[in-house]
């Protein structure tokens, strides 16, 4: 579904040139859920932004569904196929557009018909009732906003969903709701996920394979079994796992 080969991403030019990602390569199969894990500044979100064209300075080869993605040109078909959910639901919705406007504009951009029927359907798909249709973002809680953002991403019926820390701005109980929703949607629609997170437990919950990133490089690829058993080779991955598992100590004792 998604193949990234030898990707470099940089910001600025000349004296301010910064290499954010160096030689990242990975492959995500159709229907798979893949995680990118690392700390802030490791370049994990930058990879997503480069794929979608939001970070213009990159080189390497990216293919979505066997079709190459070019650096500065993405057509309607690409945007229909690949969508993204952002980290902060407070920043990713236009403050003056109602839920209805956000969703119907997106539907129109993707050339959908029967918009009046599809908007309530989308809301229902993400677990929001029809009464939310004409609300504005400031009238919604963080979790509700993130549901709207997910509905927007789903509007064009994409195949690949890029999730940029979709729950890190939310309370844990709301995080559980959103993670369940994402799992359900993937099951119903056969979506492919690429999820960026700093939280190994979240990635371990939703993803089957993951790449650990450190200062712009992928240092190790793990599958979820290896992750759970703590069988990582790279010292950095080990340190990350140790930090997450000691956090789970109390929870484990709860059983």
């Amino acid at each position: 579904m998604l193949e990234v080969d030898g990707m470099n991403v940089w910001f600025g030019a000349g004296a301010t040139h910064v290499d954010a990602v160096q030689g990242a390569s990975f492959f995500v199969g159709r229907g798979e859920s893949f995680g990118l894990v690392g700390e802030s500044g490791s370049g994990k979100s930058t990879i997503l932004r480069a794929i979608t064209g939001l970070a213009p300075g990159w080189s390497g080869r990216v293919e979505v569904d066997g079709k190459p993605v070019y650096r500065d040109r993405r057509d309607r078909a690409f945007h229909k196929r690949v969508q993204m959910v952002f980290q902060d639901p407070y920043a990713s919705l236009h403050p003056r557009h109602s839920v209805d406007r956000v969703l119907s504009e997106t539907l129109r951009l993707h050339g959908m018909d029967a918009i009046d029927r599809r908007v309530p359907q989308l809301l229902e798909d993400v677990g929001l009732g029809p009464k939310f249709r004409f609300r504005y973002p400031h009238q919604l809680s963080g979790g509700q906003r993130q549901r709207v953002a997910i509905a927007r991403a789903l509007a064009g019926e994409p195949e690949l969903l890029l999730l940029d820390e979709p729950t890190s701005a939310l309370d844990v109980s709301v995080q559980a709701e959103i993670l369940n929703l994402l799992a359900d949607l993937r099951g119903e629609r056969g979506l492919t996920y690429v999820m960026v997170s700093h939280d190994l437990a979240v990635v371990g919950h939703l993803c089957q394979r993951l790449a650990v990133m450190q200062s712009g490089r992928i240092v190790e690829m793990l599958d979820v079994e290896q992750l759970r058993r703590g069988r990582a080779e790279h010292p950095y991955s080990r340190a990350l796992i140790a930090a997450s598992v000691s956090g789970g100590r109390t929870a484990r004792a709860a059983e």
Partner: peptide, 17 residues
């Protein structure tokens, strides 16, 4: 709150809400 956390050591299909 305790049960809604995803955990590496005890995978679950669905998180408790």
């Amino acid at each position: 709150l305790l049960n809604s956390l995803p955990r590496l050591d005890a995978p679950r299909a669905r998180l408790e809400v």
